[in-house]
Lab assay of single mutants.
Amino acid sequence: LTVHVGNVTYHFDNPEQAEEWAKRMAKKYQGQIHVKDGQFRIE
């Protein structure tokens, strides 16, 4: 699973971990989480 934050990409084996990280990053950067094809993108 991949989480994109700006132009930085993080890889996770565990979906719960990826989702948790995406939520934390979205809160930190006050962005929206977009989920597409098993990838999380924070914008």
Rank of each mutant, 00 (worst) to 15 (best):
L1Y: 15
L1T: 15
L1A: 15
L1C: 15
T2N: 06
V3P: 00
H4M: 13
H4T: 14
V5Q: 01
V5I: 12
V5L: 10
G6E: 05
G6H: 11
G6F: 14
G6A: 09
N7M: 08
N7Y: 10
N7W: 11
N7S: 11
V8G: 03
V8R: 14
V8N: 09
V8A: 12
V8D: 06
T9F: 06
T9Q: 07
T9K: 07
Y10S: 01
Y10F: 10
H11I: 10
H11R: 09
H11F: 13
H11N: 06
F12H: 00
F12M: 00
F12C: 07
D13P: 08
D13Q: 09
D13Y: 07
D13H: 07
D13R: 07
N14A: 08
N14Y: 08
N14V: 08
N14F: 09
N14L: 10
P15I: 12
P15G: 07
P15T: 10
P15W: 15
E16M: 12
E16N: 11
E16F: 11
E16G: 10
Q17N: 09
Q17L: 12
Q17F: 08
A18M: 05
A18I: 03
A18F: 06
A18Q: 04
E19Q: 09
E19W: 15
E19M: 14
E20R: 12
E20L: 10
W21F: 15
W21I: 01
W21L: 03
W21G: 00
A22I: 07
A22W: 05
A22S: 03
K23Y: 10
K23I: 13
K23F: 10
K23G: 05
R24T: 11
R24A: 14
R24V: 13
M25N: 03
M25T: 03
A26Y: 05
A26T: 03
A26P: 01
A26R: 02
K27I: 13
K27N: 10
K27D: 13
K28G: 02
K28S: 03
K28E: 10
K28N: 03
Y29F: 09
Y29R: 00
Y29N: 03
Y29G: 03
Q30M: 09
Q30T: 05
G31V: 12
G31M: 14
Q32S: 08
Q32F: 08
Q32V: 15
Q32C: 13
Q32E: 10
Q32G: 04
Q32I: 14
I33R: 00
I33K: 01
I33S: 03
I33T: 04
I33N: 03
H34N: 09
H34A: 10
H34K: 11
K36W: 11
K36E: 14
D37R: 00
D37S: 01
D37K: 02
G38T: 01
G38S: 03
G38A: 02
Q39K: 05
Q39A: 11
Q39R: 03
F40M: 08
F40G: 03
F40S: 02
R41T: 15
I42F: 03
E43M: 05
E43G: 04
E43N: 03
